[in-house]
């Protein structure tokens, strides 16, 4: 095995990096891949909560990079998915406790054991970001249809380019199809215009994401949820499948009539 190392980053906070990491991780594990999730948001760890694994943490990333325990000891196995592992980070230390070299060394060590290693990056472009991207082969930039989020994504893509990361993919999260249709929200064309990188996901804003987050069970694969289906499509695109993008627009009464008459 030789893992692909993917960093999930955004620049701006609150666009859904951690949610995306958790969902892609679970999705890949559902497709029978051996996956490790590394939380690098030291001091503000969340990934364990989204996966419902907080109470199983024994050691953390800082213990591993400082050489107190081997990484295998710090890995937390997911309760439902045999092949999904989390390497949580410390709640008490801060970002300066892990340096880029240490994380790169760890990734190289873990590479042989997994199919995918996902790194959840902290917000911002400071040291935490530099550490998180150091070992990655691919970067996934998460953004929202909002000018500030797109602007920050643009900046992050520039920073990734400066660090010689050329393989960059985009996920647009929390799209509200109704607002897009009314012209109150940026649409995909506006976003592509500025960012011009390959998009592998368009995920709608969905209440089920919040409820499932609170339960510690990512929404991916939940057929009742549009976001769940969108995340599963992202996973399939990462696995190399060619999946068309969903039509996120609500199936309005008007459109149904149009379709009945073969107009749409």
């Amino acid at each position: 095995m030789r893992a692909e190392i993917i960093v999930i980053t955004s620049g701006k906070g609150g666009v859904g990096k951690t949610t995306t990491t958790a969902n892609i991780g679970v999705g890949l594990a559902m497709n029978d891949k051996k996956v490790a999730l590394i939380d690098t948001d030291t001091g503000l760890r969340n990934l364990d909560l989204l996966l419902g694994l907080e109470n199983r943490i024994m050691y953390d990333l800082v213990d591993v990079t400082e050489g107190r325990v081997p990484y295998k000891k710090a890995l937390v196995k997911h309760k439902k998915f045999e092949k999904l592992f989390l390497l949580p980070t410390s709640q008490v230390k801060d970002k300066s406790s892990v340096n880029p070299e240490a994380l790169m060394k760890l990734c190289d060590e873990m590479r042989e054991e997994f199919d995918y290693i996902l790194i959840d990056c902290p917000a911002g472009i400071e040291q935490g970001f530099q550490t998180a991207i150091a070992g990655a082969d691919t970067a996934i930039v998460v953004t929202m249809p909002e000018i500030s989020a797109v602007r920050d994504a643009d900046k992050i893509i520039g920073e990734l380019g400066r660090a010689d990361k050329e393989n960059i993919k985009l996920i647009v999260n929390r799209i509200r199809p109704q607002m897009v249709e009314q012209g109150d929200m940026l649409d995909m064309d506006d976003i592509n215009d500025i960012l011009s990188i390959t998009c592998i996901g368009q995920v709608p804003d969905d209440e089920k994401v919040v409820t499932s987050t609170n339960r510690g069970e990512p929404v991916v694969g939940n057929e009742d949820s549009l976001a769940g289906r969108a995340y599963m499509n992202v996973v399939r695109r990462i696995l190399g499948e060619d999946v068309p993008f969903m039509d996120l627009r609500k199936d309005s009464f008007f459109r149904r009539i149009k379709r009945a008459f073969g107009m749409n």
Binding site: R151, D152, D154, K155, I157, G158, E159, G161, I194, S196
Partner: peptide
Amino acid sequence: NKTLRGGQEIRTKASVLVCGNVNPG
């Protein structure tokens, strides 16, 4: 020969030719 993204800056005494976009920021 590339797109200039937000936060990037070019400062030169010379003239500049950009083959790509100059993004906001």
